[in-house]
Design a protein around this nucleic acid. Structure first.
Length: 445
RNA sequence: GUGGGUAUAGCUCAGUUGGCAGAGCGUCUGGUUGUGGUCCAGAAGGUCGCGGGUUCAAGCCCCGUUACUCACCCCA
């Protein structure tokens, strides 16, 4: 865990840490836009009824009330009460329905916002955190091809980040459900919930769960676990599933879909996208492809990016808007990069140059130097007091500002690289720092 | 919501059978009249989470409380 905020679960970064987060956000924005996704922002609040439309997660939701509200106004029972959104998918679905007349489908959008969940905070789990979502939503129907595209978009986006190796694990709900039905297990949601714990509690415990809670036979539990143990980086999972001898129409459909995703991904993003038939995803609105992403070596952190295909999250009359998309847990990712990745910004401030003062009167001519440099896109600050040069240099050093600018009494200029100590004559109208010093960079310590 | 752990300087932590509040790092000042980092000397900085109790005496023992933290649940 990186530095903790005084209020648990509501992280606040220091300027240097925020630069790392901004770098992540900027990179995601650029990548999403390179793939043709436009941006929207939805309001932070939704009605309780809207948020809880899909599932029983009410205890996660932070309600909103006026301090002087009447008692009856308290959130909880009234579906018109306001609450903070706990993800961006549900508000997005609402937004699509409301603005359907103004949107061009398939609608591609990305959305980067804070979300809130009223849970016990833990390592990598927050009450207030930033998610970065990318989704495509269609009107009536959405070609399966988008399930493939989204896997590639996310592989590209994560690949552009300084996060080391990661694995996008992909499964398909139809495949899993068809398999369980073929086995004779009808409560597929319950099976999925148990299978989802595989990585955490192990195969034996999951088998016990399946037998105890769902009433599966040992044979059925064994087969379900056999399916969940299949992981391949190519399409060989198909043969492995077939070898288990289960038949179901939905299973065939799921196998075909997953094959398409893995086939394309193994060519365009080799090694990062794998078929993993243990991936379940808790949310029940997913209907086909499901994605989950872990950092290699940080599996215990949990998923840093997940999502899937939802066939009917949004509907308006008899019009449905199926979609597919993923959500990156930016805060979780950044907190881990800062703590274990040792990632940090090369300096705490944007300034590339500090203009030093000879005496307090030279502040005005120093501003002229600063203005000239800023005119060429160089971030500059001017010393406030004509302290000893040693102190002015130390001021820059403390903040990581790489250059200190000196203007002599005769009007001549010199600039010093305080890392190397090199000091050379310079002209405010033409001097430019090396490109890598223009803005704070990101490095591992 | 349930269970365990922790709480002392800005940070990381010592603090003996209860006896005047400590270290390292960081910060600030100085080391002879303006070019930092090393080194040396000095200084500042604490309601020992909060409230009560036991005691001549509590950072330490007891009770309560709050916060943080780990696990469960759920999830990015």
């Amino acid at each position: 865990m990186a530095r903790k905020a005084s209020l648990s679960g509501f992280p606040e970064w220091l300027p240097n840490e925020r630069l790392v987060e901004l770098h992540v956000l900027d990179t995601l924005r650029r990548t999403f836009e390179l793939h043709g996704f436009g941006n929207i922002e939805t309001r932070a609040v939704e009605t309780v009824g809207q948020l809880l439309r899909k599932g029983e997660i009410d205890k996660e939701v932070y309600g909103l009330s006026r301090l002087q509200a009447d008692e009856g106004e308290a959130a909880g029972t009234d579906p018109n009460a306001l609450a903070l959104h706990f993800d961006l998918t549900v508000p997005f679905a609402r937004y699509v329905v409301e603005n359907a007349g103004h949107l061009a489908f398939p609608f591609r959008r990305y959305q980067i916002q804070k979300v809130w969940r009223g849970e016990r905070p833990q390592d990598g789990r927050f009450r207030e955190f930033t998610q970065a979502d990318v989704d495509v939503v269609g009107d009536g129907a959405l070609p399966f091809r988008y399930d493939v595209e989204l896997a590639l978009v996310i592989a590209d986006a994560l690949g552009a980040l300084p996060i080391g190796e990661f694995t996008v694990r992909v499964n398909n709900r139809k495949l899993a459900e068809g398999f369980y039905r073929g086995l004779g297990l009808e409560d597929t949601a319950a099976v999925l919930r148990s299978i989802d714990k595989l990585e955490k509690i192990g195969a034996e415990k999951v088998a016990e769960l399946l037998v105890a809670e769902i009433g599966a036979t040992d044979e059925q539990a064994h087969a379900a676990l056999a399916l969940a143990s299949i992981r391949t980086a190519d399409t060989s999972f198909v043969d492995q599933v077939r070898a288990l001898g289960v038949e179901h129409e939905l299973l065939d459909e799921g196998l075909a879909e997953l094959t398409e995703v893995i086939e394309a991904a193994s060519q365009r993003a080799p090694g990062t996208v794998v078929a993993d038939l243990s991936i379940a995803r808790g949310l029940d609105y997913y209907t086909g492809t499901v994605y989950e992403t872990v950092l290699v070596g940080h599996e215990k952190l949990g998923s840093i990016c997940s999502g899937g295909r939802y066939e009917s999250l949004a509907s308006k009359g008899n019009r449905v808007f199926p979609g597919v998309g993923l959500s990156i847990g930016v805060s979780r990712l950044v907190s881990r990069l800062l703590a274990d990745g040792g990632l940090q910004a090369t300096r705490d401030v944007p300034s590339a140059v500090l203009v030093a003062l000879n005496d307090d009167d030279s502040w005005y001519t120093a501003q002229d130097v600063a203005t000239a440099l800023r005119g060429r896109g160089i971030a500059v600050e001017v010393a406030a007091k004509a302290e000893k040069f040693g102190k002015q240099i130390r001021y820059a050093d403390r903040r990581g500002i790489p250059f200190v600018w000196f203007t002599a009494a005769d009007g001549s200029h010199e600039v010093k690289d305080i890392r190397s100590g090199d000091q050379v004559a310079a002209d405010p109208q033409t001097w430019t720092p090396p490109a890598e010093d223009l803005q704070p960079g990101i490095t591992t310590s």
